[in-house]
Design a protein around this nucleic acid. Sequence first.
DNA 1: GTAAAATAGTTAGGTAATCAAAATATCTGC
DNA 2: GCAGATATTTTGATTACCTAACTATTTTAC
Lengths: 165, 165
Amino acid sequence: MNDYDQRVNELLVHIFDEIMVTEEKALQVGRFADLSISEMHTLEGIGLYESRTMTETADILSVTTGTLTVAIDRLVRKGYVDRQRDSDDRRIVRIKLTKKGKLAFRLHLKFHTLLVDRITKPLDESEKNLLLRALTSVSLFIEEQDQRYLKNLHKAELKAERNGE
Amino acid sequence: MNDYDQRVNELLVHIFDEIMVTEEKALQVGRFADLSISEMHTLEGIGLYESRTMTETADILSVTTGTLTVAIDRLVRKGYVDRQRDSDDRRIVRIKLTKKGKLAFRLHLKFHTLLVDRITKPLDESEKNLLLRALTSVSLFIEEQDQRYLKNLHKAELKAERNGE
DNA sequence: GTAAAATAGTTAGGTAATCAAAATATCTGC
DNA sequence: GCAGATATTTTGATTACCTAACTATTTTAC
C-alpha cells in the first residue's frame, strides 16, 4: 500500500470511528437517553408506518427472533413499541412504534441530517461531488464484492503464510 | 435536506450497516475464524511494532482498563497477544502481538487495502488530491465540532417537540 | 376430521463487550 | 517507612447476541 492509500485508509477509519462515537454520544443527551444505538436500530427496523411481524423485523435487522423478542420486551417496557397478537393468525405477533417511538425515530433522522450537514459543511462543490463518488464506491464495493473479496482474502492469507509472515 | 445531503446520508447509513456485517463475515473464513471484529480492533489498538501498556492501549481503544483486561485474557488464551510485566516498574503490564497476532492483523489490513484500491483506482491525480483534502477536512471537522453539534441536536429536538412531531 | 408437519414466537442457557467500583500490587515523595 | 498515587485485575452489573428447546397455532395429507 502506498502513502496515499495509507493516508486515505487512515482517514476513512478515523471518520468511521468518530461517527460511531458521536452517534452514541448524541443519543445520550436529551429526552431519549434510555435508548441505546442498538435499540434505535431496532426502532428503525420496525419503521414508521406499517406494523411488522417479529420474523419480518428480525430478518430486516439480521438477528434471530429470539434476540428480537428480548429487545422488544425491553422496548415495550420502555414505551417505544406496541406488541399485539394478530387476530387472524394467532401465531403472529405484530409490533409497531408507539407515539413516543415515532418521535424518537424522527429525531434520530434529524440526527443524520445534522451529521451530514456537519460533515460536508467544510467542503466545496467539487469536493462534495468527489466525496459522493467515493462513498458510492465504498457502498458498491461492499454490496458486490462479498464473494470475490472472501476469495481474495483467502488467497492473500495463504500467500502471507507461505512468506512466513 | 437537499438531494445531495439526502444521498450522502443514505450512503453513510448503508455503509455503516454493511461494513460491519462484511467485515465480520470476512473474518469468519480461514485461519482466524476465532477472532471477532472487536478482538481485531483490539489487535489494531496494540499495533504491530511497539509493546504497549494496558492503560495506553485502553486509551487508544476508548475502553476502561477493566474491559481491556478481559479482552486481553482471551487474546492471550487464543495465542494472539503476549502479556508481560515490566521489569522496571512491576505495576505495568506490557502487551504485544504474537507472530500469529501480527499475521492476523496484516491480513485484516488487506480488507482495507482492497477497499481503498476500489475507491482510488478510478481517480486521476488531481482527483486523488482533492479526495485527500476532502477527507482531511471532514476528519478534522468531526473532531472539533462535537460540542457544538450536540447543542444543535438538542435544539432540533426541542423544536421538533414544539412542532408536535 | 384428526394426526403430523410446518410456522411463529418465547424461553433458557451461554458467550462477549462493556462499565463502575472495589481490591491488589507496586512505586514515589517526604 | 508510610501515605498517597498509579497500574492493573477482579467483581458484579447490563446489554446484545446466539443456539436449541419449548409452546402455541395453523396447515396439510391422508
